[in-house]
Amino acid sequence: MLDILNYSFMVRALIAGGIIALVVPAIGSFLVARRYSLIADSLAHFSLAGVGVGLLIGVDPVFTALPMTIVGAIAIEYLRQKRGISGESSLAIMMSAGLAIAVVLAGLSSTPRSDFNSFLFGSITTTSWNDILILVVVAIISITIVIYNYKALLHIAFDEDSARIYGYKVNLVNYLLATITAMIVVLSLRIVGGLLISALLTIPIITASRISNSFLQTITIAIIIALVAVIIGLLAAFYIGMAAGGAIVIVTLLIFIVSLVIKR
């Protein structure tokens, strides 16, 4: 059973998946609470534009996708906060913009289409130690930001006006949350893929919120669900040959269905 650990690419995938499973629910819970679940989807689509740039100029796509996605995240918040465009509409604008740029750039690029597809659907074999190093750094930064701003984030999730009255820098915290979401989305591309990251960001939280009594409990249970899903999904990918990203999301869906049956 443990021969999976003899393959270094699977060890790297398990480490990367485990880190993502720890971080994604911690961020996703605040997004879901604010009905902002689709931000991951929009950012993932926008990150594909960055991937396209990387493939076009021959640079590791992560290094081009990261700054572009952060800019996209800040643009979404800017449209919402400063231009009075609803969150839903600003997400739709950025999603379309990102995908349009990605499609054009992918067409111009001479790199094989499979390289681009690996970012769409994830590809565990392409996760390098370099990727893991970046992931660890980003995960530490993200978790530190969440812990340091936990009360502000929870207050904003509960009631943004009230958080402003209590003196929190709501706009700044919103920009921070959007930025760390962008970073995690980009770094999850190789594991679950751009088209599936929003599932990992929302389904464990929605499942956990059905059985938990508090916000903190929801985060804890969602992390456990995400970890279970990543491990089972990667095992399925290795032993049955399933696509890792799809397998991980299917496991989260199965757990969600079980929660529906157990707690009607």
Partner: peptide
């Protein structure tokens, strides 16, 4: 304004804010 909270927040967590 918060009738359909997507993620539950307990009363004690709200007071804790």
């Amino acid at each position: 304004f918060m009738q359909n909270q997507q993620v539950p927040i307990s009363v004690i967590e709200i007071i804790g804010l």
